[in-house]
Nucleic acid binder design. Structure first.
Lengths: 237, 237
DNA sequence: AAAGCCGATTGACCCAGATCAATTTTGGCG
DNA sequence: CGCCAAAATTGATCTGGGTCAATCGGCTTT
């Protein structure tokens, strides 16, 4: 038996084995393209709290989130913060037209990203309209989520915001780890408050109230939906 | 002199003469493509208050706004409304991935749109990646605006919201009708309130307050920026 | 020009959620 | 362990903006 010739990728990973292969941008690439694509990205790790990219920074890279959770946010000059979304594995980050990131992203817990230099990535896309179509599709989905979130921020009460957040977060985790009434919340209460346009105290009080009414149970690092129907009723209102 | 052969478009318009030719989606098409494109769209008029498309309706058409202003909004079951944006000439509407519109759009004043049936438009795009790129670019710009608006809705005071709105609206009109301190406001106070996540009374009171302080002057159908620097200071805060 | 209507403004009062201020709980770390 | 710092909870109080209720004013209709 002869020794097989194996290509070893510099950073030791293959796209074919990638955890997000099936649902990230790269799901639009066939096996041959994937081999070319493989040389474009490199895995990079970030520790808890580290910033992956900053608002107003010139965009030099795009990122494909592989592991962990990120908070994406914008700051006002006086320090007020609005979290515009949480990123989960499979999310593609960094697209913009101004040449600068229009929000910051940092790691909630340990994070692994697949980092692409902007120029080579742009060249790779150039003659692969199916990849562009995939990116456009993901952008349109994000835009739809952004509009839903505008409704939440502009027109919903604190109770409705919290209930909607819990159900929406559970729904997003569904595709990654299956449906469960136990919902892990890796982000802090402050993060949740800044996502919902509330203060940390209001978020805390609302959680406590929901627990008192038997709708949820507060766990370490998450919550459990004791009465999903009741939470849904609150969110629907 | 022989009689010249002239192609007459069924609805009597040519894309080459179109008011939004230079900055709408079609700006990515060359002269030859434009002639093919011309047969896809038809001009449709809507009167004040008419609905162009409704949330949850199956998407059968895309729209290129040619004349007028539209309000784009989502409703909660109990009637609360969040306006997610105002559309101006050149805006492209109707893209989604669910197959249904995810917001409603109706005419503020008289509106003219260029309507495209979804399927033929999709086929036209198929082998024209530059058009797809143009659409993607417009989507990314919208997403960036959506995120800015989330910050406004979640973290800004009523004064800041109103000041930011006036400047932002002036800025958007800039490219269409030049920079001016007189800002037409074709939408109602209720529309502004539903865009900013406020009530009509708060919008009205804030306008009055800005006028008392000499920052603006309230006109019929608009406002005039008397002290742009002061309004900018309020918005920046 | 009087009547009627609808959008906008103004005033009086109220309350959801913010702010301020302690605790209490949790999570490292020597 | 026990100590410290950070996060979360809870309580007391305040207030920005909402709610409710009159007007006001500009347009249309006759």
């Amino acid at each position: 038996m002869r020794t097989s010739v194996v290509t070893i990728k510099p950073n030791g990973y293959f796209c074919t084995d990638c955890a997000v292969r099936g649902f990230a941008v790269c799901s639009s690439l066939d096996a041959a393209e994937l081999r070319a694509f493989e040389h474009l990205g490199r895995r990079v790790h970030f520790a808890t709290g580290e910033t992956v990219f900053s608002e107003e920074d010139i965009t030099t890279s795009f990122y494909n989130l592989l592991e962990g959770v990120m908070r994406l946010y914008k700051l006002l000059p006086d320090g007020r913060r609005q979290i515009v979304g949480f990123a989960l594995p499979g999310d593609f980050l960094g697209m913009n037209i101004s040449g600068r990131h229009n929000f910051s992203g940092d790691a909630i817990g340990a994070v692994t990203v697949c980092q692409f230099a902007k120029a080579p990535f742009g060249r790779f896309i150039e003659d692969r309209p199916h990849l562009l179509r995939r990116i456009n599709e993901m952008t349109i989905r994000e835009l739809s989520q952004a509009r839903d979130h505008m409704v939440l921020l502009g027109r919903r009460s604190a109770d409705e915001k919290v209930a909607t957040f819990l159900l929406g977060w559970r729904e997003r985790l569904f595709s990654l780890e299956g449906l469960s009434n136990t919902v892990p919340l890796p982000m802090s209460r402050q993060d949740i408050a800044d996502y919902l346009g509330l203060t940390i105290e209001t978020v805390s009080r609302t959680f406590t109230k929901l627990e008192r009414h038997g709708a949820i149970e507060i766990l370490h690092g998450g919550i459990s939906l004791r009465d999903p129907a009741r939470v849904e009723a609150l969110a629907a209102a």
